[in-house]
Design a protein around this nucleic acid. Structure first.
Lengths: 231, 231
DNA sequence: ACCTGAACACCGTTCAAGT
DNA sequence: ACCTGAACACCGTTCAAGT
């Protein structure tokens, strides 16, 4: 056996990311990461203080990728609206996260402020400052965006999703369920009926990207109202 | 040993909730829940198909508590603005979640649509319908709210929090750090300086409740703009 | 100096056995 | 019918031992 490429923090993190892309966040295990590097799990502890440390750094790696995506964006036009500048960056962040579907869950649980995240929010805040928001207003806005600033939201509402996936759309049964709803859940019944009509003409029930952009624009507009009022 | 109270799904879920309140979500274990009931872990599998099932039902239990809180709310005034009606309900949901700090993480990972969650969203949607939103507009709005509809958001931005907690506020060191930031992170440096002034007069750096309400109101206003424009 | 083997204290879950 | 004991295949992490 020739000496293998020496282990390093960098290589460990790259492998952890590869495992996550392949097997999801639950698949990221000291043992699985080590395996991919042809090494025993305990060897990782030379370069990483534990699994928490590894996951914290994985967040940084993702955010670094987001920062790269933002830097590749075209320069904003001189008098471009702050909303569209921010919007473009947020959607670039989102595009990055879509390539790593496990990342939102990780960001939610390990959102510690590392250098990459700081860089992202620094530019984010600077854009709002240039648009005329006060320091205080930007601070509030950053909280208002929350995870949306990085291009994702935790959705709780997946209308009909489980009921539909279980069985192949049996129209008769679906209608029966609807009728049962109509009594106790009149609005959901109304919406389900409405969505069912759309389903014939559109791809799916909900277009996540569209929904995200709608929510983002609503918030941007809500903030613009406040900005305009404060001048 | 006298025969103990017989095990039941209900008792298991109550105990799981008690464990979570005491030891956090990570403390909820088949074994720990069983322990609290004076029983072996394997006994739970008679009433629960597995841990996933248990956690799914725990979500329902929390949302049921939220629904109760909403029902205890005063009736809306006849011509009350839809925003304030919804706002009151969302803040009631939030108050419930604040009593169970582990709940947001659980809702994020096990947000399956059970009856309790459906009931909550049905009333939520109905309020917007009565205010004149179209079915489509309500659907989009529900997505836009996301977890905020239930009173929480996943925050990524905790300005200064780690730096401050580590050491007792050493003003000299804090200033040195600020200076280091000023070069590469001008906005964050500006904000940190601003926050430091406020820290003298307010309780903490960020008031989570205030921040939540700000973000909520911004979104409500953004949606009101759309509602008004569509009439 | 760097990695490994064996071990420890935990998990969720199974299955045959007890009562 | 309802619960238990023992076991299995996993975790993260430790520590002394190898090279």
């Amino acid at each position: 056996m020739a000496a293998r490429k020496p282990l390093s923090r960098e290589r460990i993190l790259r492998e952890a990311m590869a495992v996550a892309d392949r097997a999801g966040l639950a698949g990221v295990t000291m043992r699985s990461v080590a395996d991919g590097l042809g090494v025993e799990a305990m060897a990782l502890y030379r370069h990483v203080s534990g699994k928490n440390d590894l996951l914290d750094s994985l967040v940084e790696l993702i955010v670094a990728e987001i920062n790269e995506a933002c830097e590749a964006l075209p320069e904003p036009a001189p008098e471009e609206d702050w909303r569209s500048v921010l919007r473009r960056r947020i959607l670039a962040a989102r595009a990055t996260l879509l390539r790593h579907p496990w990342a939102p869950a990780l960001l939610g649980s390990h959102g510690t402020m590392g250098p990459a995240l700081m860089r992202y929010f620094d530019e984010f805040g600077a854009i709002m400052r240039r648009a005329g928001f006060s320091v205080d207003a930007v601070h509030h806005a950053l909280h208002a965006f929350g995870s949306r600033a990085l291009g994702f939201t935790t959705e709780l509402f997946q209308p009909g999703a489980p009921a539909i996936e279980e069985t192949e759309v049996d129209p008769e049964q679906a209608l029966a369920e609807l009728a049962a709803f109509a009594d106790s859940l009149p609005f959901l019944a109304e919406m389900a009926a409405h969505l069912q009509h759309d389903a014939a003409t559109t791809i799916g029930w909900c277009d996540d990207q569209r929904e995200f952009e709608f929510g983002l624009d609503a918030l941007l507009d809500g903030l613009e109202v406040r900005r305009a009022a404060s001048r």
